[in-house]
């Protein structure tokens, strides 16, 4: 499993370098063709680069710390037994803390499902993992401002809760329908 993810990582890196190479080549060609655009391109790119490079190391350190100090089994322990409104908010909080790509969260969600956690909590956990990361919110704060970040965060929490409950109802309803169907057969 680990070996495979390493191989995948290498493949991903090659893809990223290719993407960078192509972008760079297009930029060079365009700037040779339109020398008068050099100044605006470079100044705009430099501005965004500086803004990013001043926060990226700090964001990466936060992500590393979360990943090491909040191991996955802690999440499973807390979420497996929580329920109700408290449970769904705990699920969102648990999803917001640890870091890593979304595919790391799928096995955790599958374990939770097997352990009997509520579907609404699992959906909330997955959605929070995907889009309410604390380091991510910090970068959003830097580039899009406090008002934008807070508004989107609050709306996302509200709608993730609604979505979790809705999906749970849909799944329960379809299971009930299936059961009835089997009984009539």
């Amino acid at each position: 499993m680990k070996k495979m993810s390493k191989k995948q990582q290498k493949k991903g890196l090659v893809k990223d370098m290719l993407f960078l190479g192509i972008t760079l080549a297009i930029a060079v060609v365009l700037l040779l063709m339109f020398p008068e655009k050099r100044e605006p391109v470079i100044s705009s790119s430099r501005g965004f680069f500086m803004e990013m490079i001043l926060i990226l190391p700090a964001v990466m350190i936060l992500m590393g710390l979360f990943a090491v100090f909040v191991p996955n089994d802690v999440i499973v322990k807390y979420l497996g037994r929580s329920s109700g409104i408290k449970g769904i908010f705990l699920a969102i909080l648990m999803g917001a803390f640890p870091t890593g790509p979304l595919y790391v969260a799928f096995p955790i969600a599958a374990t939770l499902l097997k352990k009997g956690a509520r579907i609404s909590n699992i959906i909330a956990f997955l959605s929070a993992w995907a889009c309410i990361k604390i380091p991510q919110e910090l970068v959003e704060l830097q580039f899009l401002g406090l008002k934008f970040m807070i508004t989107r965060l609050l709306l996302t929490v509200v709608f993730v809760v609604i979505m979790g409950i809705a999906i749970e109802q849909i799944v329960l309803w379809s299971e009930k329908k299936n059961n009835k169907h089997e009984q009539t057969l």
Binding site: D16, M17, T23, A27
Partner: peptide, 14 residues
């Protein structure tokens, strides 16, 4: 690498 690529795209875009 992805960061650099996106930064270049932002510059070209603007």
């Amino acid at each position: 690498p992805t960061l650099l690529a996106i930064i270049i795209i932002i510059g070209l875009l603007s």
